[in-house]
Design a protein around this nucleic acid. Structure first.
Lengths: 199, 199, 199, 199
DNA sequence: ATCTAACCGAGACGGTACGTCCGGTCTTCAT
DNA sequence: ATGAAGACCGGACGTACCGTCTCGGTTAGAT
């Protein structure tokens, strides 16, 4: 079953200059297919068909299929997680992790991440892009912890990177394995544990 | 007393039996290819050739290539990590994590896991098997924490699952992303942090 | 659709001595499958299943699959064609050819020959056997012509082999190509032409 | 006169066009492999490798391997046999049959036909194509006989189709069975016999 | 107003791996 | 020893997908 019927709004050829509409059509199609669930792999042909464009148009602007999928993912994920500043480490962490868990468990995003990881594991280019993506996210969390350190909320020897990786580690491990939920309750417990451990 | 045996006349399997040597040859070949590094994907043909068997023999006993790879991995990993019992949570954790990190960063296993994850991400059956595998490993770590609880080393409200997932989370996250090392030093720091948080 | 349900009559294992019943079961199964039409290829497995025997039993008594098929065919064809002796070449030929054409156009035999030729064309052993078979049939026809020669019905320089091959050639060519019928009428016309040419 | 062309707006085929060079490379490779002798079966992979093309390109344009082989054969055979016009039936037949026998026994063509027949016998589509091919060849021979009839060289009741099939029948029967040669001498004898029988 | 070069949808191309099918051999247990 | 069952090796099959190339057509900007 096709995930969604091809959107019939005809994009005009622009010629000469890059057609932004085509670019957006590709990203939108990628999001639809990634989110479609069912685990059907997103092939380049299916992506081109869903977007109503030619395969070459994909390869003209992205180095590989995975790069498209990653951009489709990050362009939506970017603004779903904030870096709150409540003045206390635990509540900052709780807010950040609640957002993270919620975004990661939304069916669409979950499907996207899963599909994307499949690509990353075999396509080194995508793995690099994925690493870049997680670097950015780790940076967000680091910012929160650094602010707490400046407020004197953390002990001297605290390994900030390790703390950050404990948080993301729980998230990725449970997301990938699916053996335990990623509820707001868990987020709060984790925030408390981490804040406690940092003191 | 009824004359028929209680077992409802199981058909007494005629025909040639499964060749255990072939099974072991396949698993051994899978281990060699997974560990070969270079990131070359393990194809079914290469696996059959390396093992000196026919492709059909693979598909007769495993549902997919990934299932073979996973079994090859788990059958070796099982006995590379111990569940130490030093009498104190922190040192138990440190010992366990040192082993875990070491096994996970040994070039062979690292290559195996990476290759395997690629299969898992696209083959749901392999993903299930991988989940089973991690469940077993989590059980080992849980055992350590439970023992500490019986010794009264953990606070009442400690979320054991969360503690376990923090440990494995750091491992998997760094293993997959490769943004930070998995040294014994990190293992000891993580053990201290987790033991502290559990109190 | 299976050609025919496996015949349920259980043959007993005899042990020690060759089981003629198994041999006949194999030939009968071969005939059923060859005649089944539909063009489904007769595989060794399907043959064993249809006959209710093991594959090894086939290879114990025949060198290859094709040899079984050929024997299945010849053992039926042998007694469907006679070598009449009416005292005149033309009527002998007509009788022989009528029989030949009739046997060759019976739906079962037609399917058998077609399937068999497929095997012969790729399996040299079968090709040899098929050659032997046609040699026998050519011999039958030669006998008829030789008798006519003894009666003085043929000219001195008549190439008997060529005459025989013209008869069988028409048969095989039309049988294989199917572009024209093999009716008794054609058989009689051909007999007249050949008898005329021999004079 | 209507402004629109009479052709009812055929879809104007977009996309890259069929590569005639690839087509010719495939046919040439098929001819080489068919003629290679040794009886090695022509596999699709070997065909693709020999032609330097992908397997899919074969399956895109031919329904099966056999169809390729047949086209490879017919495209060469077409112009190896002529329809002579010497003014007399017997000499016309002799010339035609000499050509036919010579072409059919040339090692290259013989190997081709043999290999091809194996395909034809199991692939109905190829069988159809083969039938078309023989129809064309029969047409050539018919032409010769028709010309003789116009010259009054044949008796009234002559069955032209049967005469033609006698000629081709000898050819195919001996070619397939290989029990007797297809020499020019045989061709001339057959021509004399047939011409005689037609009078 | 014309030309031209980059863009577009479509889809054929070379190539690699897949999972299935089959032939002929080998092994197990029962008769 | 023979037979039924069926696992085994080897190897061809036809399909799916990737990333590239080529086709006719479109259009922005240079001439």
């Amino acid at each position: 079953m096709p995930p969604t019927p091809p959107v019939p709004e005809r994009r005009p050829h622009t010629g000469r200059r890059r057609n932004e509409a085509a670019r957006q059509a590709i990203l939108a199609a990628a999001r639809r297919l990634l989110a479609a669930g069912g685990g059907e792999p997103v092939t380049v042909d299916s992506l081109a068909r869903e977007a109503g464009i030619g395969k070459q148009t994909i390869y003209r602007w992205w180095p590989s299929k995975g790069a498209v999928l990653l951009e489709a993912l990050t362009s939506t994920a970017r603004d779903q997680v904030s870096t709150p500043d409540t003045g206390a480490l635990e509540s900052d962490l709780a807010a950040f992790l609640c957002d993270l868990f919620q975004a990661g468990t939304a069916p669409d995003n979950a499907a996207m991440l899963g599909t994307l990881l499949a690509e990353a594991a075999r396509d080194p280019q995508v793995a690099d892009l994925l690493r870049d993506f997680t670097r950015t996210r780790r940076g967000d969390l680091r910012t929160i912890v650094e602010r707490a350190r400046e407020r004197g909320e953390t002990a001297a020897g605290t390994d900030v990177d390790l703390l950050v990786d404990q948080a993301f580690g729980v998230y990725w491990f449970r997301f990938l394995s699916g053996h335990a939920p990623l509820t707001p309750e868990v987020a709060r417990t984790l925030a408390r544990t981490l804040a406690l451990g940092a003191r």
